[in-house]
Every structure is written in C-alpha cells, then in structure tokens.
Nucleic acid binder design. Structure first.
Lengths: 110, 110
DNA sequence: ACCCATGTTCGACATCCGTCGAACAACCTC
DNA sequence: GAGGTTGTTCGACGGATGTCGAACATGGGT
C-alpha cells in the first residue's frame, strides 16, 4: 500500500459485517474471554479497553479486541491515548437476528 | 461406569444441550465443513453419514460429525452398519432461540 | 523536556484443530 | 466364512490460535 506516510491517526480496520464470513463471526464469539467482553459491552455504551480485566495480560486483551473488531462485532473510537469500544448491536441484529440475544441469554456456566 | 461388558451396540455420547458450554456450540458451528453439514441437515429428516460428501476424507467427515454430536447439535441413530444423523432443532431453538435461524439464513459467501 | 498511562506489535511458546492414510470394527450379503 | 460396505480410531503432520513479556508508539500532565 502507498498510504504509509500519513502522520496522524490511521483508521482502524472495521469491515462491513456482510463481508465477514459467518464462520468468522461465530469463531470470534467462541471464546470465553471474548464472550465476557461482549457480555460487558452488551450493557450498552462505550468502554475503554482497560475496562476489561478478565485475568489476561494487556497484550492478550488487545489481541481479543482486535479479533472482535475484525469480525465486525465492535466499533472503536480513538480518543487521545485511550480507545473506546462499543458493540455494533444494530447491524448485528439486522444481519443475524437472534444471534446475539441467543448468545447473551445463554447459561454462562458449563 | 459398570455397563462395559455389553456386547452389542454401545450408546453414543450425546450430551444434554444445557450442559454444553455456549463456546463449544459456537465453535462447533464456526467451521465451513460443519456448517455445510448443518445446512444440509436443516432440510429436515435423517441423513446417513455417507450423504455428506464435501471434499473431505471419510476420516475427516467422521471427525466433524463427532464434533457436532458432542456439542449437542445432532442426534445419531445406529442402524446396521449405517448411522443416521439429524439436527436437534427443537432443543436448539428452545435453548438458543434464533441462533440456528441466524446462522442458516446467513449469506453463505464470504 | 521528562515521565507516566494506555494500547499495539513483535517474537516465542504451547496447545488446539483440521486433515489425511492406514488400520480396525461391525454388519450385511452371497 | 469371505468379501464388500460403512464408519470409527489411531498416529502424524501442518497451520491456526491463545498466551505472555518486552519493546515500541502515542498522547497527556506536571
């Protein structure tokens, strides 16, 4: 790519949900840590990345948030040194009606 | 368990859906081959294992069917040397309403 | 300017997962 | 019972994935 020299913020890679394979969406949700993040995000509103302390290092947390973002599940707003994440619930519910609710209302335990 | 010496057919391991972690169910669906199988099964009725010719060896097919069965998604009836598989749609729709429909009606392409 | 706080990226590592061929098991038919 | 059909199990192998610490990048505060 040729747009390397841009000094300021580079845009985050947030694909159109319809361009993401279903298997990618499902795989993104098929992880305990990421599911905890999604559950927290489902409360609504924005959360700074640092909000999610689920017993993993910040490197791992960053990795999981990247997976969610690139699966089209979250949107990220950059503000200073922080990043605020929110669920793309509307688009999700439109393209996969029932999916998110089914996952969220699921029995959390084994 | 003590029912080991039974000579004939041994029962297949088919867990209660509520005992299966959501992540296991989602992971089972997050694979192209298995999704094709589920789509075929969603037509209704029973299908012999050999029905599913999706460009993988029979060892691989057997593996995928095992994953689906142990995730609580399918039920298997043994008849002679064949095994007939069907979707546990009712239970699935009851425990995860909307999940299956969302996945099935999803755009198949990338 | 310096330091600190917030996140990302980079190896590295271990584990899991999909895939296959080959061997095995069960059953049916002739 | 010999052979064929159907399906499972057993290594083995390669690629993907979750995890971490350390280094890096960026922006805010004093």
């Amino acid at each position: 790519m040729s747009n390397m020299g841009y000094p300021g913020h580079m845009e985050l890679h947030e694909p159109e949900l319809r361009d993401v394979p279903v298997t990618t969406v499902l795989a993104a949700l098929a992880d305990d840590v990421r599911l905890q993040i999604v559950r927290a995000l489902a409360e609504g509103g924005e959360y700074a990345c640092g909000t999610f302390e689920f017993g993993v290092s910040k490197a791992t947390r960053s990795h999981h948030l990247k997976v969610l973002r690139e699966a089209g599940l979250t949107r990220t707003r950059v503000a200073g040194t922080s990043r605020y994440v929110r669920l793309r619930r509307d688009e999700l519910d439109r393209l996969y009606p029932g999916l998110l609710d089914a996952v969220l209302t699921a029995p959390a335990g084994a």
